[in-house]
Write a protein that binds this DNA or RNA. Sequence first.
DNA 1: CGAACTGGATGAAACGTTTTAGGCGCTATA
DNA 2: TATAGCGCCTAAAACGTTTCATCCAGTTCG
Lengths: 343, 343
Amino acid sequence: MATANIKEVARHAGVSLGTVSNVLNRPDTVAPATRQRVLDAITTLGYVRNDSARQLRAGHSRTVAIVVLDVANPFFTDVVRGAEQVIEGAGAMLVVCNSGEDSARERRHLELLEEQRVRGVLITPVDHGPQPTLDKLIERGIPVVLVDRGTGRANRCSVAVDDVLGGRLAMDHLLDQGHQRIAYLGGPLTIAQVADRHAGAAAALQDRGSTAELRVAVTTSLTVAAGRRAAEELLALPVRKRPTAVFCANDLIALGVLQELTARGVRVPIDVAIVGYDDIEFAGAAAVPLSSVRQPRDQLGRAAAELLLEEAESGDTHRHRHVVFQPEMVVRRSSDQPRRTRR
Amino acid sequence: MATANIKEVARHAGVSLGTVSNVLNRPDTVAPATRQRVLDAITTLGYVRNDSARQLRAGHSRTVAIVVLDVANPFFTDVVRGAEQVIEGAGAMLVVCNSGEDSARERRHLELLEEQRVRGVLITPVDHGPQPTLDKLIERGIPVVLVDRGTGRANRCSVAVDDVLGGRLAMDHLLDQGHQRIAYLGGPLTIAQVADRHAGAAAALQDRGSTAELRVAVTTSLTVAAGRRAAEELLALPVRKRPTAVFCANDLIALGVLQELTARGVRVPIDVAIVGYDDIEFAGAAAVPLSSVRQPRDQLGRAAAELLLEEAESGDTHRHRHVVFQPEMVVRRSSDQPRRTRR
DNA sequence: CGAACTGGATGAAACGTTTTAGGCGCTATA
DNA sequence: TATAGCGCCTAAAACGTTTCATCCAGTTCG
C-alpha cells in the first residue's frame, strides 16, 4: 500500500538511486547483471513510477489533450480516434476533454490543462473571436493546434477541411440531378463551417450561371431535433414552393429531416432529395442511406496530432502550418433521383 | 516564458513562500491586505499553479479517468456526460480513455493512469476474467468503479443496469404483440450483457409458458455491420421459418438489421418487427423509429462518479456498493404491429 | 610505465508545491 | 503583571524523480 519509491528499489537491489533511474530511462548504460538485479527488485516491490515527480523534474507532462465541442458527436469521436493512433504511437497519452460548446467549461478545462503543463492541446474552440486563454497557453510555450476551425491564425498550427469546396460538391451534385429549388439547412451562421458550406453552395450556383434557387433556413443548432423542426417548416410551405432538395450543414440535421419527412409521408428521394455533411457511420445506416459530404476525419485527427508532436519536439525552430484536406461527395439513395428540369 | 513559480510570487509580494501557498489554499487565514498584495503579484507575473508539484506533495492527482470500450459508441458518450457533471461539480477533472475493446490498450492505459496516481478510475473492462492490472490499482488504494459490467465483485463498487430485466421487457413486449417466431441477435455470447439479455428473454418465455420459439443468432460484434450480416442470414431462411420479430442485443445491430431488411424490401414492422437495446439517439431518428430498451445512461455515469468520489473521500471506512438500475421499454414504430397468432 | 580513455556506478542538486512546527506581537483574562 | 490565547506569518522539511558532475577501476596506447 505504502507505494514503493525509487529509493527503496535502490536499497533492495543494493545500488544507488541514480542507477535505478538509469535502468528505467537508459537501460543500455547499465551493466546487464546490475540491470537485472534492479528489474527484479522492481517487480518484487511492485514499484510503479511516479509520474508527478517525473513531470515536475521534466517541466511538462507526456499527455496531450484534445478539447472537443461534443464527445457525443461522431465527427469528433473519429477525429479523436485518428489523433489517438499518432499520440499513442509516440508513447504519449491522449486525454479527451469535452467543452460541450460552452466557453466557460472550455476555459476551465484549458486552465486545468495549463496547471498540468500538458505537452500540447488539440482544440476546436467554442468561440471565433479572440481566445485569451488559448493565447496564454501559447505564450507559455504549450503547442496548440486548431482542429477544423480558425485556419489562418499566425501563432498556431491548424488542420481543417475545405468547407467551401464541400459546399460546392454538394451543390454541384444536386444541380446535376436537375434540382431547381434547393434549401440549405444549418445554423447558427456564426459557425464558420455552416457559413462556409453555404458559401460554397452559393458559389457553385453562381459559377454555373444556374437559374436554380437556393434558400437558406437557419437552425438553432446542428442536432437531429433541429433537423426535425426544420423539416416541419419546409412542410409548411405549399408544395409548389417547397424545395425538391435540401442540403444540410451536417448529418445530424439531415437525419432529423429524413425522419420527419418520412414520418409525414414525404418520399425521399422521390419527393425531396437530401444531402448531408460529415458522412458519419449512421448516414449509411439510415433507412434511406444518406448522401453526404465525407470529411477525412481520422486523417484530420492524425494530421493535427502530428503537427502537435512536431511542434513539441522542434520547439522554437517550428514554423506553424495550416493543413487543409479535401472533402469528397458520397452519393447514396437519399439524393439519387435525377429529375426533369421544370420550367 | 520561464514560468513564474510560487517563490517568485512571494518575492514580488514581499512575503514568504508559505504565505502565497496559504493565499492559494486557505485564503481566509491570511490578512486581507497581504492577500491582495499576493493576488496582485500573481496576476502581474501570470503565475499558474504547477499541478505536478502539487500532486507530488499530495500523493495523488485530482483527475478521475473513465476508460470506455469505444469512444464512438453513443452509449458510452452518454455515460461520460453523466460522470462529467458529478466529477466537475466536485472540482476535479474527468479524462476519457479509449480501450477500443483491446485488452492491451486497456492495460497500457491503466498503467499510465497508475503512474499518474489518478484519483480513481471508472471502467468498463474489456475482459471478464481476472483483471490483474485492475486489482493492482485497487491494492495501491486507487478506487475503481465498474461500469455496466462485472457486478458482484467484492473489492470494488459497481453500477449496472439489470440486463436480465431488459431482456424480459423486450420479450414480453414481443409476445404481447403475438409473435411466435422470435430471433435474438447479438454476440459474442461471452459478453455478459449479451448473455444476460438473452437469459431475460428466455426467462420471460418460460414464465409465460409460451409456445413461441426463440432462436439465437450469434454475431461477431455489436456493430451496424454485424447487424447487416445477421439480417442477410435471416433472409436466407425460407419465409415460413423466418422469425417475425428480432430482438437485438444493441441498437447498432438493430440499425444494421433495419437497413438490410428495408434494402431487401422486407417491411418493418409489418413483415418483421425489430426491438433494439440502449435507445441511443439515432434509434428514434431512424427512418422507421426503433423500439428499444432504454438504459438510464447518464444516471449510470453519475452514480458511478458519485460512488467513486465517496470512496476516494472516505478511504478505508468505505463499504463497496453495487447499484443496479432498471431499464425501460420504449415502444416505437419498428415493433408496433400486433399480429394474429398463427397456429 | 604513465597517460588517457571508458564503462559503470554514485551523490547531490534541483524541480515547485504543501504542510507543520513554531515565532512574534497583541489582547483578553485572572 | 504574568499567562494564555490568537492572528498572522515564516522557515524548513518533505514528496519522488532526473540529471550532472564525479569517481573508480580497468584497459588501451604510446
